[in-house]
Design a protein around this nucleic acid. Structure first.
Lengths: 349, 349
DNA sequence: CTGAAAGCGCTAACAT
DNA sequence: ATGTTAGCGCTTTCAG
């Protein structure tokens, strides 16, 4: 109970040397079959479990990888992590998961923790604000491969897997323009709730928004671009209420994320505006709540499963061959058009 | 780069023995202060990091604990895990998180994984269906303390932290009765969407429901107890639609969980029933979505933070003192009354 | 106060 | 095909 059985115990029990036991356990070719069998049986009988620490000490491999995410209560990262675990556990790795609650400081601590744990690689999605760029580089320099997923630090040489936020924001806005035009508004006023400036993605999605307007001959009106300080339902609610008071309610809204869009939608409905008849609303980053609102929220879905799997494979590649080139994989998104943006979709709900 | 510095390197650099370095690093009292200082500085300079595997090998401690949850995409367990991590990381432990997607088999694999990792303790919330009771006992027997949280296996001697589901279901239903009576219905028909029979909690919450009815002189009508096969929005939607078709729409609904309640609410609204004016709806286990529905969903909130923290402390206690007694901590829930059950709350939204 | 030596459990030359 | 030996990086007697 207190003490686990070791190869030494097995060796003694069988009257052979511990190296033979070790070899037998490793299923080496140079062990007599019957010895092998005897060892296996004795190991089973004595409930032998190899001590991973002794093994690691010698093999200089920990078979542990680390994951750093900004948070995991929003299911977004949780879904990705599940795939990461699936891939790595199949390969015999353990996955150490850390979350930093969007704090760059905590992120740093987590990276330290992982480094001390001698992980063989790290998968990371960086925090909204602040970058530990120096640390990322240091880790890579010291031989611990890093792979970014979803949110990447741009100026670090590492593999990454992301979606093209610019492109999918563009498509989302294009959809809004089309749907409003179908409804007889040739020059719809499309508003954007922009994410905080600290988030790289805010800029990307804004550019997608602006370029979609330009392509379709609509002016990019700065009064229609609302800079949000946070990306919560409450903020969306507050901002849209302000628009209502100011009488600047648009024909359509493209939210930086679902939460902002949901808050805005609530404000609109509360004041008697009809969604989508009067205002089309569109989110980004398909959330659990998108299917709970009424009408259901249109959004851009990201292939979280593939993102997790791809990130895991990229890291595995780096671990198995440290000299392998860095790769950037851009995954496709998916426009989920639902009732909040398109009246035609209302029936289906 | 390839090779980390070891105490041997430090010793050589300083011309002293590695045992002294070891002692200095451990801040032992029997080392000359200046030696200590010199070692510390050299360690810093050479970027010394102790090899945890060598340490573990000797100390026979891994400073790792494991967590097993049924899933973590629903934020429920994620919130608990965050607290667990907070407590244990403060104590210098690593937390290995595993999820088993509600599969008892996967749960068993996860437990094996953790056992092989030589965790010093395990925090577990068991799957809906099936129990690995034999394995739980085996682990405890072999000296790995187990602490249950939220969902516990009843017949295993271990510490646990739970909420009193019976009691809070009782309160929830009592609230529904009261609110309907205030609305002038002396004998309201309260329906219950019961969870699957494999889930222990289904029975507990049902009993709370039934006893609340009895206490208030209402009949327990089996036609008002709908057994659900899953606990999803879709199931709730389906079941309530069936009631609508059959003309058995009740005055109030107590759902086994929020998802069922949200699905039911959607079905009701879709068919023109007013919530809460015609039907009061109440969920359980406060979900993210509860605040997204309109009206917002009344629910029983569980103190997830405290649950995580308490579970962590109970396990820590067991690790530090294996002989300590098993304890059961029952946490209080919280009735969040919102617009879906009580018309008075609608204004506040 | 410090060094030498043993050993944690395991693997991997090197022998035989 | 098996045993002997050394050693991974660290801690901990045991001497001095």
């Amino acid at each position: 109970m207190a003490q686990n059985t070791t190869i030494k115990d097995i060796a003694r029990a069988l009257g052979i040397s511990k190296s033979t036991v070790s070899r037998a356990l490793a299923d080496r070719f140079d062990v007599k079959p019957e010895t092998k069998k005897a060892v296996m049986e004795m190991a089973e009988k004595m409930h032998y479990r190899p001590n991973p620490f002794a093994q690691n000490l010698i093999k200089r491999r920990t078979k542990i990888i680390g994951v750093v995410v900004p948070e995991f209560i929003n299911s977004f990262f949780a879904r990705i992590i599940i795939q990461i675990q699936t891939v790595f556990e199949r390969e015999g790795f353990h996955v150490l998961i850390t979350q930093c609650n969007e704090s760059a400081e905590a992120e740093r601590r987590n990276l330290q923790l992982l480094e001390e744990s001698m992980v063989e690689g790290i998968l990371i999605s960086v925090t909204e604000k602040g970058r530990n760029t120096d640390y990322y580089k240091e880790l890579i320099g010291s031989g611990i491969p890093l792979v970014f997923f979803n949110r990447a630090a741009t100026d670090v040489a590492a593999s990454r897997v992301v979606i093209d936020d610019y492109k999918w924001a563009f498509f989302a806005v294009e959809h809004l323009i089309n749907v409003r035009r179908e409804m007889g508004q040739p020059m719809p006023r499309i508003m954007h709730f922009q994410g905080p400036s600290e988030i790289d993605l805010s800029g990307l999605r804004y550019r997608g928004y602006a370029d979609a307007l330009r392509k379709h001959g609509l002016p990019v009106d700065s009064s229609l671009v609302i800079r949000c300080e946070s990306i919560t339902r409450e903020e969306g609610f507050r901002m849209m209420n302000r628009c209502i008071v100011q009488g600047t309610v648009p024909d359509a809204l493209f939210g930086f994320n679902d939460q902002l869009a949901i808050g805005a939608m609530k404000a609109l409905k509360r004041k008697g505006f009809h969604v989508p008849q009067q205002v089309s609303v569109m989110g980004f980053t398909e959330s659990q709540s998108a299917l709970v609102t009424e009408p259901m929220l249109s959004s851009v879905a990201q292939p979280l499963d593939r993102m997790g799997e791809t990130a895991a494979r990229l890291l595995l590649e780096k671990i198995q061959n440290p000299a392998s080139e860095n790769r950037t994989v851009v995954l496709e998104g998916l426009l989920n058009v639902r009732g909040s943006s398109d009246p035609k979709m209302l029936d289906a709900e």
